[in-house]
Design a protein around this nucleic acid. Structure first.
Lengths: 119, 119
DNA sequence: CAGGATCCCAACCGATACTG
DNA sequence: CAGTATCGGTTGGGATCCTG
């Protein structure tokens, strides 16, 4: 893809970076579960099991998704000194930076649904 | 998911709709190719083969992706009276409504990359 | 309780060949 | 040229069981 097909006038190099950035975003919040988990955690910290029940997601997938979110700095994992142990997951302040984008996606999806499906 | 875990204060019903809308958005522009194709077509209409070469995507996938985009009103398909026939694909005016969201996603991805990867 | 291991199924994607 | 058919590999996700 060259610069002539880019969002705004730019060099080829800048254009390539722009689309890599978009791809990054989709990697971080795309897929079936990431946004759902973020949504749920907006309501406050939850333990692994609670999160699993709330989202109706199997432990294997939940574990993987939470790792991804943690790697990307969106969620913190805290092991509690209980017996048996329990682990709390919580959104980071950094996750707030997603808000504007999430709102954009929500707004677009809403108007799209009105336009195309039964209103 | 109930309203207490929603983006803004709302009824359970509103909350459910909000997350359906987000899911809609991901369905429409998520995945590996949708945004790439939209990006490329921003530069102007292209024929099937040109698009295939530009995006480096196999015909089978391209065909499917274009159908999806057409169904969602983002792309028009025009058969030309040539021999052999050729088909042009072009973004619709409606596709412009994606701009704000795409910019949001781009901005977030850019700052995320700066924050986490080699700058 | 947290979460890894295993097994299995479905969706996705790429390459290639083929038809109108 | 446009697009479908076929096949095969890869990824993602669900269910269940198991261990620290």
């Amino acid at each position: 893809m060259n610069k002539d097909r880019c969002l705004k006038p730019a060099t080829d190099e800048e254009c390539k970076k722009a689309w890599l950035a978009l791809q990054d975003t989709l990697d971080v919040i795309g897929g079936k579960w990431k946004l759902v988990l973020i949504a749920i955690l907006r309501g406050g910290k939850l333990k692994f099991r609670e999160l699993s029940r709330e989202a109706e997601i199997s432990p294997r997938i939940l574990s993987k998704e939470l790792k991804d979110l943690e790697i990307n700095g969106l969620v913190t994992r805290t092991v509690l000194n209980t017996r048996p142990i329990s682990v709390e997951y919580e959104l980071t302040p950094y996750s707030q930076t997603l808000s504007e984008m999430i709102v954009s996606m929500h707004e677009w999806g809403k108007q799209h649904r009105q336009r195309f499906k039964e209103q």
